[in-house]
Amino acid sequence: MRIPCPCCGWRDRREFTYYGHETFLHRPAPDAGAEAWDDYLHNRENPAGPTRDLWYHDPCGSWVVVARDTVTHAVAGGEGLA
């Protein structure tokens, strides 16, 4: 499995650390309430098929939102996080 890094191009999966679904990018307001925070921290759509998740490229320190398929392991692409 190879993953595109915005700085370094397509690199081996060994160079990346998986963080989780891109849900993590949508942090609720501090006072949004327990339900919203539970949903953000714990509950997941957990799709079987196309997904978008966060990976960290260890050598260069880039965060990447990777579009890939959880059933085939095919990686369609990725975009860096500013």
């Binding site: 989780g20 539970d38 949903d39 509950n43 997941r44 759509e45 957990n46 799709p47 079987a48 959880t70």
Partner: peptide
């Protein structure tokens, strides 16, 4: 491993990642 898909049929989101 398929808990999320079946629970979604009941409108639920589970704290599960497969």
């Amino acid at each position: 491993g398929r808990s999320s898909q079946v629970a979604a049929m009941a409108g639920m989101r589970l704290p599960i990642e497969s």
